[in-house]
Amino acid sequence: MDQNLLVATGIKVTYGKHAGLFGSKPSTPVLHGVDIRIGRGQTVGIVGESGSGKTTLGRALLRLVDVSAGKIAFDGRDITHIPETEMRPLRRRMQMIFQDPMASLNPRHTIRRILTGPLLLHGLAGDAATALEQVKSVLDRVSLPAACLERYPHELSGGQRQRIGIARAVLMQPDFVLADEIVSGLDVSTQAQALRLLKSLSRELGLAMAFISHDLSVIRAVCDYVYVMRLGKVVEEGPCEQVFASPSAAYTRALLDAIPLPEYDPGWLERRTET
């Protein structure tokens, strides 16, 4: 069996290429040939400049945006151009957790319905009672009380909603989870909880994860391997220990130097690192 679960090569994405209703729009090339591979059970970090194309890359991997060049293989199969009908069964195996879970949870549905619905839809549970059992055990896993089931998304705190997002993804028994900036709005204690949870879930379930974050400390804490992006390209990649101990790209060094540490350091703000 191939050790790699997801392999993308030479990915290019350009927004606004199609001639729209109002004639053809100016096109914005965003990814200029990106290679990335994610091993089974591996957690890969994607870090980089804001606007460098991290979210776009994630969306391309999940076939949520069309690529203009390159190839994406999932579990040994070329999925770059397969039609949506063939993509659909794969969607369950490739889950996404969003930064703002509020935007992806139906505000008019209870948590019970939000979590059991997809299980029944994808035939992962035969009936409502079995679905509920599965949901309860995952809620326990993410340290949420069963009382949450009868609540609506807005009746939970940000950290609780984030854990609902994680629970929903995990319930689909995916092979791959893409997490896009999911901890940046959380306080440090809730963040520590969520990161520990993801780490142990990926270990226990053999999940592969791509973890998009602008916070290198977070990446260091959860990832095995890291890709550093800038201007639509990968400027550095490698195992975390190596990249953090001896970054080779000037941009990676600048990223490390720009992390504010919770220590008194009066000169920090004025120190500059050339990129």
Binding site: D187, V188, S189, T190, Q191, A192, Q193, L195, R196, D215, L216, S217, V218, I219, R220, A221, C240, F244, L256, I259, L261, P262
Partner: peptide, 20 residues
């Protein structure tokens, strides 16, 4: 004190990540 200990730190990969 607990909050200061909860944050992950790239310079100390084994420290941090302690929930309050």
């Amino acid at each position: 004190k607990a909050l200061i200990a909860a944050g992950p730190r790239y310079d100390r990969p084994d420290a941090g990540l302690e929930p309050v």
